[in-house]
C-alpha cells in the first residue's frame, strides 16, 4: 500500500507518471513529493512507488 495525499491506496509498482494519469491530474500543474523529497519532473516516468511510500501530489490552482 502507498499513502497518497494521506489515503492508503493500492498503488505499489506504479510509476509517478501513471499515478498522475490515474488521478486525472494535469502534470503541468503539480509538484510531487515522495517521502518528503521532491520528485524531479524529468523522473516521473522512471520513479516507481513501493509499499510503505508516502506521496503528496500538490495540485496548484489559479489565482494570486
Amino acid at each position: 500500500m502507498v499513502k497518497i495525499n494521506g489515503e492508503q491506496l493500492d498503488k505499489a509498482g506504479m510509476s509517478v507518471a501513471d499515478l498522475l494519469a490515474d488521478m486525472d491530474t494535469n502534470g503541468q500543474r503539480v509538484a510531487v513529493e515522495l517521502n518528503e523529497d521532491i520528485v524531479p519532473r524529468a523522473e516521473y516516468g522512471s520513479t516507481f512507488l513501493k509499499d510503505g511510500d508516502s506521496v503528496e501530489v500538490v495540485r496548484f490552482v489559479g489565482g494570486g
Binding site: R29, R41, F60
Partner: peptide
C-alpha cells in the same frame, strides 16, 4: 511564490525544489 497561473506556480515550485 506569488504568481496567478497554476502552471507557473508549479513551474517555480518544481524549479526551486529541484
Amino acid at each position: 511564490e506569488a504568481f496567478d497561473k497554476a502552471d507557473q506556480k508549479a513551474m517555480l515550485v518544481n524549479c526551486v525544489l529541484e
